[in-house]
Write a protein that binds this DNA or RNA. Structure first.
Lengths: 201, 201
DNA sequence: TCAATTGTGACACTGAGTATCACTTTAGCA
DNA sequence: TGCTAAAGTGATACTCAGTGTCACAATTGA
């Protein structure tokens, strides 16, 4: 039998990863992301530089891997969405579980966003990560259409929806959490016209 | 008097830059972007590694600086647009000069796009460049509004418009230039609903 | 208890990007 | 035409991210 998908080793790996990231995050906040080297992180965490680098593919990932689940969350939300109206409303609904995810620990998420938006390298990689979510979302949207729209149409809608999310997240962070994230997402989606509901195909 | 903005040196610098980029582009196409080092480029161009690095801020810039004018082109198009309808149509019109710019030498542009889309590092930086265009476009759009929309609304519209452009460009490249870029941009913009024309504020 | 797999640290290496220095070239002016 | 300040150049040294390899230790599953 192949090793179970949640082997002891996998659990251990996740735990170590989380702990390394936790210590590293403090270093980043205290000293600045660019100023902290992998050698510093190795020193602060007690593992060797080699080992630290085995847990993360690059320095940005030490901070951003926390947001990895979001892409799959959106795809799953789309997949389990019973309603069959237009893409745009489906995409908006698919962001609800993401909001829940982000709201589980508002102050922690806000601390991460502060570091990310203050560090160009992190912002850039964060955008890359969001970009990487898109293909799976496009595939999921087209999966259940008997007569799918042209690729480019779905791609544009997904891109726009993700940019709505990004803009809302940025505004939420700028407001220091005072504005409501869901409302901001609604505002973003409305900025591109609700009448998108009228499907042509 | 401070040196004129188009000094002899500035012209020389642009010319050298263009020549270095030209030779480098051939190397990249022949050997692969990641496989070519700055040392290689120095060898191929005849200048020292130090000098080569003075002309470009990073390796991606050697390829992508060609697209730098596009951001300003869009802003200027918006500024000189007499019509005062909604943001969305203004943004669509502002892309026309960009299409003209790209059509001046289709096969050259296509060669660049091939290299860019085949090289993840270049695609990523290309997206960054497009992202960097946004703030100026947002500012220009809000400049002439007596009653400007909320920041987030304009930001989302600009982001969406730029993603429409990006999607159209990608599709154009996928079609190897057979499809019409302007038509593809129209299709992209229509994917987000023409009824965006109905402004709420 | 044993064997195969996986984690670890040490080390060496490549290559991007930064910084500095002495030297040369050139623009612009007297 | 010749002078000078500014800009360009090449050599060199440096930091650090990220990759790769090796021998060794720990763990797992049988």
């Amino acid at each position: 039998m192949p090793p179970s998908p949640v082997s002891v080793r996998a659990i251990s790996r996740q735990a170590v990863r989380a702990e390394l990231a936790r210590v590293a995050f403090n270093e980043f906040c205290a000293t600045g992301f660019n100023q902290v080297t992998f050698a510093d992180l190795a020193g602060a965490t007690g593992v060797s530089r080699s080992t630290f680098l085995r847990y993360f593919t690059n320095k940005e990932d030490v901070v951003l891997f926390l947001f990895d689940p979001i892409g799959d969350t959106i795809v799953e939300a789309l997949a389990s969405d019973a309603r069959s109206d237009d893409d745009w409303h489906a995409l908006r609904r698919a962001l609800n579980p993401v909001v829940d995810f982000l709201m589980r620990d508002t102050s922690e998420v806000m601390a991460f966003l502060d570091l990310i938006y203050e560090t160009p390298a992190l912002s850039a990689r964060f955008r890359e990560k969001q970009f990487d979510w898109r293909p799976n979302i496009v595939r999921e949207l087209q999966r259940n259409h008997a007569l799918p729209d042209a690729q480019i149409v779905t791609r544009v809608r997904v891109a726009a929806a993700m940019e709505c999310f990004a803009a809302a997240l940025a505004a939420w962070r700028e407001s220091e959490g005072r504005e409501d994230l869901s409302t901001l997402i609604d505002t973003s989606f409305r900025a591109l016209g609700p009448s998108i509901a009228i499907q042509t195909s």
